[in-house]
C-alpha cells in the first residue's frame, strides 16, 4: 500500500473537562474515499475541525505527505490542499456565485499590502468553467448563492474545492437537508472525486450514503475510533453495533 496522504497519531482534545478526542490515530490513503460515521458527540466534528484548521489539537500530531503540520487557521489547511465543505457554512447567501468561489483567494490585478483590485473578468470566467466541470448547470455567475437550492450550493462548494486543486476534500454532512434527488447528485460528486485523484473524507449520519460512495468506513464513538474496515468487508449491522 502507498504511503498515507494524511497520518493522524494519538490526537487528543479537551473541552473544559470533556475529553472529546481520546487518542485518535488514523491513516488516510491517497485517492481513497473514507466514510466517517458516528453519533452526535462521538468526536467526528472535532477531528474534522482540527484537520481543517478551525480548532487545534491539545496533543498528538498530524503529518501530510510525510511532513508534520500544525494548522493555526483554515487558510493553513487550504494551503496544504485540504478543503472542507460544510453542511451550511461554506457559502455566503447574499453574495454572487463568482464572489463566493473566490472568497479569501481572489485573483488580483494589482495589490498593496494584501489588498488589491479583483480581476472580476477572470473570476466570472473561471467560476463558469469550474461549475461546468462538475457538471452543474447554473444561470450566471452573478446569481446570488441564496437563490440556489441546497444541492446546487454543495455543487458550487465542490466546484470551488476542485478549482483550487485541493488534494483532500472533507465533506461534513453534505447531504443533510437535501431532497432525495439532490442527495444522489452529491453522492455522485463524491464518487467522481476518485477518478480525479482526490482523496475524500465523507462525514454523514446516514450510513446508507456512506456505503454508497466510500471505499473504507471508520466509525467513532465517545472520542475513539471503534471500527475501521474496507466497505466490502463490513455491513450495516456491524457498524450499528459498533456505535
Amino acid at each position: 500500500m502507498a504511503d498515507p496522504i494524511i497520518k493522524i497519531r494519538n490526537l487528543h482534545k479537551w473541552y473544559s473537562g470533556v475529553h472529546a478526542l481520546k487518542g485518535v490515530s488514523l491513516d488516510i490513503q491517497p485517492n481513497e474515499a473514507l466514510g466517517l460515521v458516528g453519533d452526535n458527540g462521538a468526536g467526528k466534528s472535532t477531528l474534522i475541525n482540527i484537520l481543517s484548521g478551525i480548532q487545534q489539537a491539545d496533543e498528538g500530531e498530524i503529518t501530510i505527505d510525510g511532513e508534520k503540520v500544525n494548522f493555526r487557521n483554515p487558510r493553513d489547511a487550504m494551503d496544504r490542499g485540504i478543503e472542507t465543505i460544510y453542511q451550511y457554512n461554506s457559502m455566503v447567501p447574499t453574495m454572487s456565485i463568482a464572489r463566493n468561489m473566490f472568497i479569501g483567494r481572489e485573483p488580483l490585478k494589482a495589490s498593496f499590502m494584501g489588498v488589491g483590485i479583483m480581476d472580476r473578468k477572470r473570476m466570472a470566467e473561471e467560476s463558469v468553467q469550474a461549475i461546468a466541470d462538475v457538471d452543474l448547470h447554473l444561470r450566471s455567475p452573478d446569481a446570488l448563492v441564496g437563490e440556489l437550492s441546497g444541492g446546487q450550493r454543495q455543487g458550487v462548494a465542490i466546484a470551488r474545492a476542485m478549482h483550487f486543486k485541493s488534494k483532500v476534500m472533507i465533506l461534513d454532512e453534505p447531504t443533510n437537508h437535501l431532497a432525495v434527488k439532490e442527495t444522489q447528485k452529491v453522492i455522485g460528486f463524491v464518487q467522481s472525486l476518485k477518478e480525479l485523484g482526490i482523496t475524500a473524507i465523507f462525514i454523514s449520519h446516514n450510513i446508507h450514503h456512506v456505503f454508497e460512495c466510500c471505499d473504507r468506513i471508520v466509525a467513532m464513538a465517545r472520542g475513539e475510533v471503534v471500527l475501521d474496515r474496507r466497505t466490502e468487508e463490513t455491513n450495516m449491522e456491524e457498524i450499528h453495533s459498533a456505535l
Binding site: S52, I54, D76, N89, V92, M95, R99
Partner: peptide, 14 residues
C-alpha cells in the same frame, strides 16, 4: 461582504 453576510462561512474560508 462575506464577514457581514455569513460569518461562519467567512471564517471557514480563512
Amino acid at each position: 461582504r462575506a464577514t457581514g453576510g455569513f460569518l461562519p462561512a467567512a471564517q471557514a474560508m480563512g
